[in-house]
Every structure is written in C-alpha cells, then in structure tokens.
Nucleic acid binder design. Structure first.
Lengths: 355, 355
DNA sequence: TCGTCTTAGTAAATCGATTAAGTAACAACT
DNA sequence: AGTTGTTACTTAATCGATTTACTAAGACGA
C-alpha cells in the first residue's frame, strides 16, 4: 500500500531554525504573499481586506516571529536606511560627542550609520565616500571635513563647508570670538597670543577670521609674533606645547593665550609652566570645545563650549529630513549653533606688573 | 515611409546619470549577463571564455564604470560584509580607541560596521542586537559589554565575557595587577586603597580578583575600609572623586590609591588635593587604561596601559576569520593581551613619616 | 561516420518582498 | 436582465547579480 504523500514540513513556532519568510507564512495561511504584504505594511490596498483576515495574518506573523528580510526590502526599494558618517579621527573626543548626538537621532528613526575616519589621508577621502555610495547609503554626514566629496548624495557637514551639500551645521564663530575676547578683555588682557588650528581643520579659517574681526572691533592688535599654528594631525597636546614654545621664543609680551581647542590649550599650559610661568597668575589660557578633559584638567580650563552633541543630533535630523523629502536643496542651508563661555580656572585678571 | 526602428539608447560613457547594470553592459557587448558575471568575478566557469572576450568585457566595464549593485549581491548571497559593534558609551575615550583598531582591520577586508552604544540601558541591549540581526550583520563585536546577546551570530567580546561567543579578547589582569602592585611596593607602599569599577563594567570582577590574589601573594592586606566602588554610568572623574572621599571619610591610613581607570584616578587626585594632600608626595595614585588625557594631566598619571587599539584590531581580525570560515567554535577562544606599566608623575616613594 | 570532448557561450531560476494588473463572486442599481 | 461596483483576493513582474542547467558548433578519435 502506497504511503501517504509526505506532509509539508511544519513551520516551527519557536523560530527553531531558519526564519520564516513571507511565502511560507502565506502558504501556511492559504493566502498569497501579496495579501500578507499589504496587511503587514498597512498599505492602502489593504482596505478591502476584512478585519478577520487581517487579524489572522497578524497573529500568524507574531506566532512565527516573522521578520521581513531587510536585504530583500532594501534591494527592492534601493533604500538602505543607512547613512555614512566620515570623521577625521575617532579618538580625540570631539567626533565621539558628535556621533553620540547622531546616534540618538538615528535610533529613533530606525537608521544606522557606517563610520569611517579618514585621518586626513587623501586616498581615504576618496575611498570611503565611494564605499558609501556603493553600499547605497542614503546620505552622508561629514564631520570637520572640508573635502568636496566626489559624489551625488545629500551631505550634511558639521563644522565644515560643503557648497554642494544639503546643509552645514556651523558654530557661530563670530559670537564665539566675541565672548572669548570680551572675557579676556574684562579681565584686563590686551596682549593676547593665539594658537591657530591646522590648515586641514575646517574651523581654522572661519574662526581665525572671526577672531581678527572681533579683535579689530575691540581695538585689540593681533601681532604676528604672537600667533602660532598647530602642525601635525595627531590629537595630542604636544602640538599646543610646540606652538606655545614657538610663541615664547619670539616674545613674552602677552598675558593671555587663546588656543584653538582644549587639547592644545592643555599643551600650552604645559609649555608655559615649563617656561616658569604660572597659569592663570602670569598667563591666562582660554580653550575651545569643552571636551571631557577640560573640566578636570589642572587648572580646570576656561573654554568656549561647542554644543557637539546637539550638532550631531541636528545634522542627523536635517539629513533624515532631506533624505525623506527627496531632492537636496540647490543652496545648502546653514544652521548656526551658539557657543557658550565656560569660566573655570585657567583664566584670571591680568597680573598687575608686567613680567 | 516608415521611420527606422528607434535606436537603442546609447550608454553614456561618462556615467552621466544612472549607473550601468550588468544587463545593460551585456546588451552593449552582445553577450549574456552570465558571461560578464563569470568574467568579472573571475569565477571557475570563466575558463572556457577566450582571453579576447575577457578583455572586451573588462574594457567595457571600465569604460562605463560598471559597479555591481551591492544590494543585489548582498541580497543574493545573504551576506552584507558588515559587522555590528556595540559599546557602552562613545565619549569616554576607551571605546574610541578600540574602534580605531577595528576600523583599520575592517578597511583592509572591505567590511564596514554599524555602531551602537547601549549606555547600559537594558532595552537598548535588546533592541540593538536585534537590529543587527535584522540587518544581517555577519558578526558582532561587543566592547566592555557582558550581556549574553540573545542572538545566533558569532560574537567577539573585547573586555567582556561571552560564554557563547566566538572569542574573548581579554587583558591579562593577573599580570596587570602584578606589575601595578610591584610598582607600588617597590616605592615602599604597603597600605593601598582601591577604587573598584562599577558592577556593570565587565572588567570589574576579573580585575578585582586579580588584584586580591596578587596582593595576597605579596603579603599586602586589602582592607575593607580602603575599598570604594564607582557608582553611576557617566564617564566622569566625579565618580572617582566621590569614591575617594568615601575612603578618606573612613581612614587616612594609606599612602597609595590604585584606581579602576584613568578617569577615576583624576577624580581621586582632585579629592586628595581637596583634602589637603599632595599627589604624589603624600599619596601616590595609579591609574588604568592610559587614555589620552593621562599623559597630560597634572601630575601626569602613572598608569597601566591597555593596548586598546590592538585589542580592537585583534577583535576584528578574529571575527572576520570566524565569519570567513563558517561555524563559530563551540568553546570560545580566549586571546590575552598584555598590559604595560607607564610610569609618570603621580606615583612616588612612600613618604618617610606617616601623616 | 558516429560519438565524445571541448569551447563558447545562453536561458532560466533564484534570493524575498513589493506592486501593478488582473479576476471571481456577489451586491446593487437601472 | 444586464451593467456597474465592491469586496477579497491572486498572478506575475520587478529589483540586479549569481548560478545551475542547458545548447550549438567545431575538433578529435575510433
């Protein structure tokens, strides 16, 4: 006697092995995949499906823990729900804060991001964006990275200019320069030394221009021998140390230093102390960024805080908006965020008598 | 008179608009997609294709800048060339160093990673791994994260235990405890206070056990009133400050503190100085990790360096290996990396007379 | 001269979900 | 009674690359 046709393999409720796909679930329900797709995605076409059937479908989906294949979906729609983020360097504290903000915004939207750090290497600045494009990211966030990315995708820059991008998140450097100089002036400082950022840093130029014009407005002279520039691409106080030594070698006729960032401010303090000067009694030092270490340095750094977390959040939200709507604006929008003076212990009134 | 059939739209050499796909390229060459696929992927089946045809195909691919659709490929092969990385917190410097190492290894292999930070929130520890699975990452790197991820994927842990994972990258805590205590003992310290890590930190327990046994071997007593634990999940020296105050409130009968990490060591120094004690003259402080800030603190921290970059690199390489080979080992392998004592200025010989 | 190999390919199925275009059954209206 | 509309679905095409299973033409050997 012939044996019965082998029964269809039963779907395993406990998601025992392979995940269930739409077709299997449809077969199980004696419906077509289309119907399930409509119902599960709550598509407009699902209006004609009676509630009872909908319930059956939802129940089965839950029972068998059906999860749509992300790859199939991405492939079909050519949408990956993924962004690319490119930063210069991961370990300097700056990017990490921005990324935290980015992550928070993306989590809510169900997006992820690929992270790449270019470390100022030309080839990585070509390679990574291309990889992003190949992987069909829907947009790119470029942190502190000036390069015009050679791609046709919405780009939101954080602290960087991108004439072709969708938006730029920028600190109000004019305001930053103003509050910084006002703080030093209030303390009586008029001879101020400056540490400029590296050329590759996207903030360097804007900030420097803002400082020069703010200084000009306030009748402060920016003397050439009191300006040094950071050289090198490691995120180390060493650079600020060297820059400060350079200034000291040319003149000691200053009572304050305005550094490009907190890291270099820390180096500056070290250099000053090595030269027998006390901070803030002999020289005041003003940092920038307010990274984590700033508050716990000794002396605790007076600094200009950038709202890095918010900048990351804003960048991600803006980009998601653009990605959602479709076409990037012809003229990239500029979003300005405001700096804040954080007064701690590295600045003090100008010493009574010159050294 | 009937017009000629409209000509096929010419492929635009300059990648003018839409990228070329395999079918279009095949049509252009009067070949089938199959042939192109064979040749371009250098598949075994391509042996029968004459060199001349191969050359034609390669030339056309170059000319039209053909790039295979990553999504289509991923979909077909159900392989994404993507890993997931989960860390507790991005902005504390620790994870960032590990990530740099991870990135370096992945770049070479053409992999990317999704980054997620769980900030010790239970729900994120469920949600993120599930999102990783949904997106078909091929494996997960869990940094300083103990949770047994509820998934069936190769996992490599960095500083964390994962009994079901593929591998654990661990610091040799025994060695770390030994060189730390030996250093302090050499300087004459015998009454040593300890700051333990938070319970959620995966290093806390192993390290503490290692310290206790190393102390025991050396005849050093670990006194209860000289032990405090970090509380709270923010990466701030504040925690070390509080812990140190707690110890000081119970006893001042110690000449050294061994902190759980550099951040808390910095807080400890602040607390000691607030109590009128000088570091290292009255009390030596020993940190852990050697994060960026350690070298530039004042006093510069003596610390136990973890090779974080290498740990990240090793984790990524190991995971790629497992992913490439297939089945994860039943018994997770343990890779041990070695710590290194970095002597700076926060430790000094025990003061002659007790306070 | 038939059969077998080799060469140089092509055709069609596949991955899983979505979606445009049907269709069958019944109700309602003129 | 015939037309139109609605309800409740199904069929088949699609996204792009890969892969399995063919086929046609010529070479070679027995």
């Amino acid at each position: 006697m012939p044996s019965k046709k082998p029964r269809e393999i039963e779907l395993v409720t406990q998601a025992g092995r392979a995940p269930v796909n739409l077709k299997q679930l449809a077969t199980h329900l004696n419906l077509s995949p289309t119907t399930l797709s409509w119902v599960l995605n709550d598509s407009p076409s699902a209006t004609s499906i009676p509630q009872q059937t909908k319930d059956r479908i939802h129940a089965a989906a839950r029972e068998f823990n059906y999860r749509p294949n992300f790859l199939a979906r991405s492939f079909r729609a050519q949408k990956t729900h993924t962004l690319g983020v490119i930063v210069p360097e991961l370990s300097d504290g700056y990017s990490a804060m921005v990324l935290s903000g980015v992550e928070e915004a993306l989590l809510e939207a169900g997006y992820f991001y690929f992270l790449a750090s270019h470390r100022h290497r030309e080839n990585l600045l070509d390679v990574y964006p291309q990889m992003f494009v190949d992987r069909r990211v829907e947009g790119i966030i470029a942190v502190d990275t000036n390069a015009e990315l050679p791609i046709d995708l919405p780009v939101v820059s954080v602290s960087g200019r991108n004439s072709r991008g969708a938006a730029n998140i920028l600190l109000n450097h004019e305001h930053a320069a103003s509050i910084a100089l006002d703080h030093l002036i209030e303390l009586g400082h008029t001879e101020i030394a400056f540490i400029k950022g590296q050329d590759f840093s996207s903030d360097t130029e804007v900030r420097w221009n803002a400082i020069c014009s703010a200084a000009d407005q306030r009748g402060i002279r920016v003397r050439n021998e009191l300006v040094a520039q950071l050289e090198g691409d490691i995120p180390s106080p060493e650079l600020g140390f060297t820059a400060t030594q350079e200034i000291l070698s040319k003149s000691s006729d200053f009572t304050a230093i305005f550094a490009f960032n907190d890291i270099s401010a820390i180096g500056a303090i070290k250099a000053l102390e090595a030269a027998g000067l006390s901070v803030p009694d002999d020289v005041s030092v003003l940092g920038f960024d307010d990274v984590y270490a700033a508050a716990f340095h000794k002396p605790a750094l007076t600094t200009i805080r950038q709202p890095l977390f918010e900048m990351g959040r804003l960048a991600a939200e803006t980009l998601l908006n653009v990605v959602g709507r479709g076409i990037p604006a012809a003229e990239p929008k500029i979003y300005m965020v405001e700096p804040k003076l954080i007064v701690r212990d590295s600045t003090a009134p100008r010493p009574e008598r010159p050294r």
